[in-house]
Amino acid sequence: MNTPSQTWDTRKTALELPEEIDLQIEVANVGSRTLAILVDIACCAFLLLVGYVTVSLLASNQGADWIDRFGSSAITMLFLLLVFGLQWGYFNFFEWFWNGQTPGKRLLHLRVIKVDGTPVSLIDVLLRNLSRPIDTFGPMGLIGLLMIFVSRNAQRLGDLMARTLVIHETPIDWSVFDAIEAATAPNQNTPVPSVRLDPAQWELLQRYLSRRTQLQPDQRARLAVSLQANLKPLVRGTDLELSPLPSEEWLLELARRI
């Protein structure tokens, strides 16, 4: 989890809600959008391959009776429709039925929304996807890439036309708060001198406690020492200041007092 920072590849755009709040939305960057497109193209290619193998196995005009010929022409027709459908319908279909997501976008946690934050309608989906031959596929993709780089909200031409944005949705994981809450919980009725952490310090402690089990032992100890050095000024004048506890225990003890 990264802190929100304004670097070239994390762009945010403000949505003003009717509730009078500026909602910060993270716009998807070039890398994840390109990757999502590649995943989708791979899906299409796989379906095409399956279709092609089926056709070459089943359809032949050498059939003896009319049933054979009818069947093989039906299969050829379905294959033609498949090619056409993948070319023009794949993105439209998924973005409409999956509310702005295709398999590739779902994999990378991207979603297409309107610039005002509402879900896309069918006509928006058609507008942004029928324009793909001009700014996504083949060498034309360079135009789309350039547009995503330079336009303020990373919109390619089709996005501008449909007034849509592609956003990145960070998955919410409430369990990151579990560790610090577990450390804090037991002291509800034992009166200990309470320590006040400011939000940044609380964030630091929370991240350390939720992640310490995943760290290498030496890294874990080193981080604990540096955190202790940072947080020590807070406990000046309490028994914790001179406490001989090792760093990690000391941090847990601190968490118990907030």
């Binding site: 929100p4 909602l23 939305i25 934050g117 964030e203 929370q206």
Partner: peptide
Amino acid sequence: TTLLLFLHQLVA
């Protein structure tokens, strides 16, 4: 903070 990030996601 992480919390602010989560709340943005949730409200969106």
